[in-house]
Computed example of a mutant assay.
Amino acid sequence: MISLWLLATEEGGYGFNFDILETNLINLVIIWGVLFYFGSKFLGNTLSSRRASIEEAIQDAERRQREATKALDEQNKNLAQAQSKAQEIVQTAKQNASKAREDILAQSKTDIERMRAAADQDVSFQQERVMRELRQRIAQLAMERAENELPSRLTPEVQNSLVDKSIALLED
């Protein structure tokens, strides 16, 4: 207001001042004053609302970070449990495979021993059968030969001698 009064008194009244240097400075001061007076509330409200939204976004980001950290910890815990369970499964599978291997080896040994015993028994049986057949054949051949040679060797003197020996054996 003072600047307007000064302008009016210098020129002799109210009017336009066309001096660029003077008017720019005065105009700038007026614009700054108007902006400061009216704009401070608007700018203050805008800045405070912007500040509130930024603070809210920061709090939201921090909350999401805490949730993500919590979820990450939970997933790491689940992963550790899964790895532990996988190790247990692998260990159990190794134990089962080892036991199955031992069982198969024991069963194989039993089967081999049984097969050997059966084979030995079969061989013994076959040997006995062959020996029996050989004895029968030898006995048969001996009988046939004896029947063939007996009539030619059995003379009346040999017959009498045999009868006498048989009687002597009976008397004793």
Rank of each mutant, 00 (worst) to 15 (best):
M1A: 11
S3F: 11
L4S: 08
L4G: 05
W5N: 13
L7Y: 06
T9Q: 10
E11S: 10
G15H: 00
N17P: 02
F18K: 13
I20S: 12
I20V: 12
I20C: 11
I20A: 13
E22K: 02
T23P: 00
N24C: 15
N24H: 10
I26G: 00
N27V: 06
N27Q: 12
I31S: 07
W32P: 10
W32S: 14
V34N: 02
V34R: 03
F36V: 01
Y37N: 05
F38M: 07
S40H: 02
F42Y: 05
F42M: 06
L43F: 02
L43I: 05
G44E: 08
T46S: 09
L47T: 00
L47H: 00
L47W: 00
S49A: 13
R50T: 14
R51E: 08
E55A: 04
A57S: 01
I58S: 05
D60A: 10
D60R: 14
E62A: 02
R66T: 06
A68L: 12
A68M: 11
T69G: 15
D73I: 12
E74Y: 11
E74C: 07
N76D: 13
N76K: 13
N76L: 13
K77W: 14
K77C: 14
K77P: 04
A80K: 01
Q81W: 11
A82I: 08
S84F: 00
S84V: 05
A86P: 00
V90M: 15
Q91I: 01
Q91P: 02
K94F: 15
A97C: 05
S98Y: 11
K99S: 07
A100V: 04
D103W: 02
A106S: 08
Q107T: 11
T110A: 15
D111K: 00
D111S: 06
D111I: 10
E113G: 01
R114V: 12
R114A: 15
M115I: 10
A117C: 08
A118M: 07
A119M: 01
D120T: 10
Q121H: 11
Q121M: 13
D122T: 11
S124M: 15
F125C: 13
F125R: 15
Q126A: 07
Q127L: 02
E128R: 13
E128T: 15
R129P: 07
R132I: 14
R132M: 11
R132P: 07
E133D: 03
L134E: 09
L134R: 04
R135I: 13
R135C: 14
Q136P: 08
Q136G: 14
Q136C: 08
R137D: 13
R137F: 07
R137N: 11
I138H: 09
A139C: 07
Q140N: 04
Q140L: 09
Q140G: 07
L141G: 03
A142T: 08
E144F: 02
E144C: 00
R145C: 10
A146N: 10
E147V: 03
N148V: 08
N148L: 12
E149M: 02
E149T: 04
P151M: 04
P156F: 00
E157T: 01
E157L: 05
E157K: 00
V158Y: 08
Q159W: 08
V163A: 06
I167A: 01
A168P: 01
L169S: 06
E171D: 08
